[in-house]
């Protein structure tokens, strides 16, 4: 009997211990959860490359805006590598980031990464570059490159007086912006049969590669009249090659981006025109969209175009003061 009482007491003690342990665990969890809600929400900013000043502005503005809105922001550099980009997404999802502001590396290759975030209920807001899907990203805030390059094409036709030989230097072939710009430009220029494109090469949006491409093209085509480049870095590279070849006075160079050095070159008459993009507006809008998402909004427009403005010697003064 005594043994039985002892056993019952032992069982009671064990049950009480388990009960208290459970209470402790629940309390601990509750404390942890409360701590989590006290923590600011975290936003990951995953950018295709930080090796280009334009994308540095995009990333820094997004981080600054996110911080202003009270969130913790961290920037990841994909180095134009979709595999590295995939690692950043895995990292962001497992580390508990609440939203991703994203500048994709590849219009097709980046879709899988966004899908993973979507599966984990992490909203993704694309900035500047789009992906070839309208169902994975929460919203895509994009430069209207196509329309910007239509304006560029019209100006190009007028400047070359509807005739002459020209070269096109393309950006990354896997980026939709490369083709949106090229198609916008050609939608105008191709209607003028006396404007002949003698070469079209990619230089990956890179200044040095564009210089090498231009040097090579000039050997086979020394009599060109114009060069259309898919971004400003390449325009500067092409111009450098033309200066070295002694042809910069005759050949007209056209860029795209609105980079500071090219704006100065437009003012100096070295570069004919550029398309002014607004990376700050895109980055800030993406951060604001993330805030709206946290506040419960879900019906975002899939694509939001941001107007690109043609900058020439006629209106350069407006943009130099910015």
């Amino acid at each position: 009997m005594k043994q039985l009482t002892y056993l019952t007491n032992y069982n009671m003690t064990r049950k009480l211990c388990i009960f208290f342990l459970l209470i402790c665990c629940m309390t601990n969890n509750a404390c942890t959860d409360r701590a989590a809600t006290d923590q600011p929400k975290k936003i990951a900013i995953i950018v295709s490359t930080l090796n280009n000043p334009w994308f540095v502005v995009l990333a820094e503005t997004a981080a600054k805006k996110a911080a202003e809105l009270g969130y913790e922001a961290k920037v990841f550099d994909s180095q134009n590598n979709t595999a590295l980009e995939a690692d950043h997404f895995e990292n962001a999802i497992t580390s508990g980031f609440d939203a991703i502001l994203f500048n994709p590396t590849d219009a097709d290759g980046s879709i899988t990464n966004i899908s993973k975030a979507k599966t984990a209920d992490v909203p993704v807001f694309c900035m500047d570059r789009e992906v070839n899907s309208t169902t994975v990203a929460t919203s895509q805030i994009l430069s209207d490159s196509y329309s910007g390059c239509i304006a560029m094409g019209k100006y190009f036709v007028k400047q070359l007086n509807k005739k002459g030989k020209y070269v096109e230097i393309l950006g990354l072939v896997g980026d939709n912006n490369t083709w949106a710009r090229s198609k916008g430009f050609h939608s105008v220029v191709d209607d003028f049969p006396e404007l002949k494109m003698v070469a079209q090469h990619s230089a990956d949006f890179d200044r040095n590669k564009a210089m090498e491409v231009m040097e090579s093209v000039l050997q086979a085509n020394p009599d060109i009249d114009g060069v259309f480049c898919g971004n400003d870095a390449m325009a500067m590279g092409a111009y450098q090659a033309l200066v070295a070849a002694g042809k910069s006075d005759h050949v007209q160079v056209f860029g795209f981006d609105g980079a500071d050095d090219v704006l100065q070159s437009v003012k100096a008459g070295k570069i004919k025109a550029t398309g002014m993009q607004y990376p700050k507006i895109m980055a800030e809008t993406a951060a604001l969209y993330a805030q709206e998402y946290f506040n419960g909004k879900r019906d975002f427009p899939q694509k939001v175009p941001v107007a690109v403005e043609l900058v020439t010697s006629a209106n350069i003064k407006n943009y130099l003061s910015e």
Binding site: I141, D144, Y278, I281, T285, V304, P305, V306, A307, V308, E309
Partner: peptide, 8 residues
Amino acid sequence: HALGIGNL
């Protein structure tokens, strides 16, 4: 009228 964000 304008479709997105911007000055144009």
